[in-house]
Write a protein that binds this DNA or RNA. Structure first.
Lengths: 185, 185
DNA sequence: ACCTGAACACCGTTCAAGT
DNA sequence: ACCTGAACACCGTTCAAGT
């Protein structure tokens, strides 16, 4: 006789993500997740292989959410980069999780696709990949260091981030690409 | 009657660092560390408050080692950035640990001081901090993404890294700094 | 078919007792 | 003064038994 389902995979992943943000990865115990969704720990294993798989699902969901936000943003590089940082500040633990081997690399790569398209519009197809990598690497490092508290000297990180955006985006248009003689705007 | 010391804090931190690199942070159990230094787990608590403190010590040691390598490198920005990435590739787990809240932020900041000095030589005192942040953020993000397997499209990451260095360092000298009318080389 | 209590293995940590 | 065995709490995971 089937017992009614008392939870779902989505609910479990959401609960795990909340616990992660509230107390870091040590706080996402199978018992805490189970309690959050109103079930006992062993029941989680009906939907999830083990704790590691659950954490990977949380990471994948975070990647999807970031991709969604970037997709919903304007296609200006500036807006994409601001959206990226905003996500990192809102969900620091999930952001960190993105760059752990635990997260599926394709899922993660999908995240930078909007940046790739915007970069293509800015510098042309041939150098779009280099430009996108430059921008995403910088933004990733900036937010990573910010969350780690690595920026000790001097204060206004908002301004520093905007400075970086202006500098980098500005550096992409002019004669930085050897092989092509300025053919776009 | 004093028992002779059978290990030391340094030995313990080294062993933990090796276990970390070999199997990630789950492999750094107190028992494994103890066995590696020839002692039983409870003895570790004579030198270390708990496992978390031990992991922080590993992170601090990694920060010091990175600072040492950067200090030993030439003071060309290019060499500093290449040294930085080499460290990340040699010790990926330690590198990741650097940007976890677990690592003392001052220790981490000391790491970027050589870059700050080299940046000052390149763009002048006034914009040295902005420039250093730009470069360290980019390098941090590049290596982080590389280690996470986030660079899916296209192959030569060595070349991509060199491209980034050339682009960024090149972008620092010219008219990027509004307030000063080209007074240096 | 999903749920649970009971059980097991493993780990971090404490502490009394050894030398 | 450092070391250890024993013990405890906690967690991940399995499984037989419930509905």
């Amino acid at each position: 006789m089937p017992t009614p389902e008392r939870t779902s995979l989505d609910e479990i992943v959401d609960a795990a993500a909340r616990l992660l943000e509230a107390g870091g990865s040590p706080a996402v115990t199978m018992q805490a997740v189970a309690q959050a969704v109103g079930v006992k720990a062993p029941s989680l294993y009906k939907r999830v292989r083990d704790r590691d798989a659950l954490l990977r699902l949380v990471g994948a969901a975070a990647a999807d959410e970031l991709a969604r936000r970037l997709g919903a943003a304007s296609d200006r590089l500036e807006d994409l980069l601001l959206t990226f940082r905003r996500f990192g500040r809102e969900r620091p633990e999930a952001f960190r999780m993105l760059f752990t081997t635990a997260v599926d690399a394709d899922r993660l790569a999908a995240t930078s696709e909007p940046v790739l398209r915007a970069a293509e519009a800015a510098v042309g197809e041939e150098h779009a990949l280099d430009a996108a990598r430059l921008l995403t690497a910088w933004a990733t490092g900036f937010v990573t260091m910010e969350l780690a508290g690595a920026f000790r000297l001097g204060g206004d990180l908002d301004a520093a981030y905007r400075y970086g955006i202006a500098h980098l985006v500005g550096s992409l248009s002019p004669g930085q690409e050897p092989e092509r003689p300025a053919q776009g705007s």
